[in-house]
């Protein structure tokens, strides 16, 4: 076997391992949600029926028990639960009076739209900050890194309120109720993107600083390439690639933030639904959303890892 095909086998094996790992994690997440239903105070039948406060009748409880197989042993219940999940059945939400999967289907799009838009925006802001301020003298550099540290510690709910107050209520640049399309996406995305840009900026700044010291940059300069050209061509490329791996992590952070931002802006989405599920003690909805988000998150991280493997041949695994 040539070393080339050997490497290909290694890589394939690595990819298979990553996919297997992700599948394991998804199974684990499903198990955690199942356990959470059974570890909480009160009977699972009650939880499925919307909690004691929903005053389920004896008949309703009996129905729920039958529907979810609650009169079987825990192991059987667990297998039934997994079976339902495999078929895409996440149960029925008492507070929304709809199948959990329907609620999620209606809300997953807006949340993805928000998080992806925020991710891109955060990257653009972070890279801009780096390009403009890195190695531009002490003052510019300090301002840039100071801003990054400051924005990174802004709580989203506070930033969101201030943006709403200033940009929507006072200056009236954006609609207060969110509106539709781009207009409605702008403020929530900005709210999520600014603190994230602070974090990403701290990483890209360091990468960028390091990249600008590399010999090939000096060579490029010697060949008469302008400062901006060097920054864009060489610095940026090397700064972005390692940072890209943060996107998987950033997605998780954005989903956490989306819970707050969607509530704050009364925006449709999984975060908004989740908060309602929690406050209304709607366990089927809560665990359904938590599980689906976990799966999306795992898959996204897997995708980033695989893409990274493709994008950066320097990286040797296995």
């Amino acid at each position: 076997m040539t070393s080339r095909s050997l490497r290909a086998v290694h890589r394939l094996r690595w990819v298979a391992g990553r996919i297997g790992g992700a599948a394991f994690v998804v199974w684990g997440a499903a198990t955690v949600t199942f356990l959470s239903l059974h570890l909480m105070p009160g009977s699972p039948a009650m939880a499925y029926a919307g909690g004691a406060a929903a005053h389920p009748t004896r008949a309703e409880l009996a129905y729920v028990s039958r529907e979810y197989g609650l009169d079987h042993s825990l192991v059987v219940q667990y297998l039934l639960y997994l079976g339902r999940l495999v078929r895409g059945n996440l149960g029925y939400s008492p507070s929304q009076q709809q199948a959990v999967s329907t609620v999620i289907r209606q809300n997953v799009g807006p949340t993805m739209e928000l998080t992806l838009c925020s991710l891109v925006l955060a990257w653009v802001l972070a890279v801009l900050s780096s390009i403009v301020t890195v190695r531009r003298g002490r003052v510019a550099s300090s301002i840039g890194s100071g801003l990054e540290i400051l924005t990174a510690s802004l709580p989203q709910y506070w930033l969101g309120i201030l943006l709403l107050e200033v940009l929507a209520f006072h200056l009236r640049i954006f609609p207060a109720t969110g509106g539709t399309g781009f207009e409605g996406l702008a403020l929530p995305s900005l709210t999520l993107a600014v603190p994230l840009a602070g974090f990403i900026g701290q990483v890209t700044r360091e990468e960028f600083e390091a990249a600008l010291e590399q010999p090939y940059v000096t060579t490029a300069r010697a060949r008469g390439m302008g400062d901006w050209g060097v920054r864009l061509r060489h610095g940026l490329r090397h700064a972005i690639l390692p940072g890209l791996t943060m996107s998987g992590w950033a997605l998780g952070s954005l989903i956490s933030g989306a819970v707050i931002v969607e509530t704050l802006f009364s925006r449709q989405g999984l975060g908004n639904v989740l908060v309602q599920g929690v406050t209304q003690q709607d366990m089927p909805l809560t665990i359904g959303v938590v599980l689906v988000v976990a799966v999306v998150y795992v898959v996204a991280n897997l995708a980033v890892d695989l893409l990274y493997q493709v994008a950066d041949p320097r990286l040797k695994r296995a």
Partner: peptide, 12 residues
């Protein structure tokens, strides 16, 4: 407060 701002803006 968002409802109110929206009314003032002419959004509602």
């Amino acid at each position: 407060s968002v409802r109110w701002a929206a009314l003032q803006d002419g959004e509602a």
